[in-house]
Design a protein around this nucleic acid. Sequence first.
RNA 1: CGAGGCGUAGCUCAGCUUGGUAGAGUGCUUGGUUUGGGACCAAGAUGCCGCAGGUUCGAAUCCUGUCGCCUCGACCA
Length: 576
Amino acid sequence: MLLSKLLGERFKEKPAEASMISHIFLLRGGYVRQVATGIYSLLPPAKRIVAKIEQIIREEMDNIDGQEVLFPVVMPAELWQESGRYESVGSELLRMKDRNGHSLLLGMTHEEASVHMARTEATSYTKFPFMIYQIQTKFRDEPRARGGLIRVREFTMKDAYSFHTTQEDLAEYYQQCHEAYEKIFRRAGFSNIVSVESDTGMMGGSLAHEFMLISEGGEDNLVLCPACQYRANVEVSAVKPSHTERPEGTPSLHHTPGMTTIEDLYEFFKIDKSQTLKAAVFAVEGQEKPIVVFLRGDYDVNEAKLRRVVGANVFPYAGNEEDDLCFGFIGPHGLETSARVFFDASLMGENDLVSGANQKDYHYTGINVTKECLGKSFPEEFYDLAKARQGDPCPACGHTTDLRRGIEMGNIFQLGRKYTESMDMTYVDSDGQRRHPIMGCYGIGVGRMLAGAIEEHHDDYGPIWPISIAPWQIHICSLGAGKSPEVGEAARSIYDKLSARYEVLLDDRDVTAGVAFADADLLGVPLRVIVGKRGLDKGEIELVRRDKSVRVMVPLENLEAEIDAQMKALWEELGS
RNA sequence: CGAGGCGUAGCUCAGCUUGGUAGAGUGCUUGGUUUGGGACCAAGAUGCCGCAGGUUCGAAUCCUGUCGCCUCGACCA
């Protein structure tokens, strides 16, 4: 490819709309252009990278006996009505009508389509197990796209669906797929991706993992234990609260005018935040009464966990005048309310706490959770509802955990029979009985891998593509070809020779060295060949790695051998 | 959906407060000088000032509405 003809303008100013590294470089390097919110076109360099990522995914899916298929982007509403998701999924599912008024939708995931295909093609147990996958465009009408290719509305995804006759078989395949994912990310040059336990969300099912790229710009919070293998999304992470043994206190009332926050309290009483008890009130979707969650003052409520306990969506609730709750001064001692009350595990065995007194401008000190609260008007039951914090003890081993941000690159789910039952997919088992198969599903965001690769591999000047996904393998710069035609000719002849064996980009423009290097940095090609008059006069060519780890002058006659050696080294380093 | 912000040349932005008919840098085109980290000189092209309505003799500028986009939050297979 000649750079002079390559479509994709590069520029040096930071685009106003971008704040994430990958977003900035994708725009500055001429990789992508936004067409609408969360909708992008890919220019040639990005398309080449994406093709390589897809090929790696394809090979590893085929390795675990996947069969590539293609489902439609547009599906009839009826198909999604079968599973119940036409109604249950919100407005992120784009619904539309065709010319006849028939309801259609744009595919945001393809469980329904996969069952539709599988139920007519796999009617005997002898076909099982099997996995079908596709690499295709999805559309999700996200309420908020952000971060360039990190969170978009239209995107390419590899989604796979496996079908099994037993849970054991699914569990085993799930593990195989987990390993295949690790291999995919390793081959694509990632070294900073971990798998974490995750919420099953709208997909349903029992067990799920997300593959997270550890990155400051991530949207998810992860609990990572450096001592054991415990890794979980904060959304699902269990919290094992620390506990301070304190002697029982004696409840006594204090006038605390206007002190409605935990900060007010611990400053006023000169105590630690963990010696306070706070109330968080939530509205529950579809219910009139709010719910009250009591937890220790140093924790916050994890709404995802609360949602699962309640079995419905919850929202923070500010209250209104009809409530029998004294907002800002709610406490368990002496509370009389029709609202449902939960105690978080952080309160287990806690004594001598400060809490609201259920009357305006008054708090209690000396509240003992077991003695004054439980078994009185409330059940003696604790729920795990707290949000994990930096430095909390690991729920598995007790070691101090780390809270990090992550970008979700892929996920795997054990779905169970949710879709095969609702859509009535059956097979005839060896004993002649009809049964519903068990499903797993497995996704990888291709565009996120593109953006994620930049997040993991870049410097101040641009991306540094791993050799396995680089848009080109070798970038030739010819310096001063306008003045010294022999330089251009030498570059051209090197280009012709290398093109037989490698993917080569030749910068054939007559630009200054600064422009040529800046563009090469933005294109991030791993190996750079610099042809200039200075070296050529001595019969030498310069070879530079994009990551600047190698910079050598090579005699012209050794050039190809040296390039072969460098390319070999680049591939070998991927494995480490 | 809540809160804030921005829409002016391909890109980054000034001009708007105080209304008088469009600017800079960069990029692009042409010519020349340059040539190892975004060079210099000269000439040139490029604008429904997001859109619609209103006020006014006159609107990029003031008012109303609307659309688009960004950031934070809510949401997120």
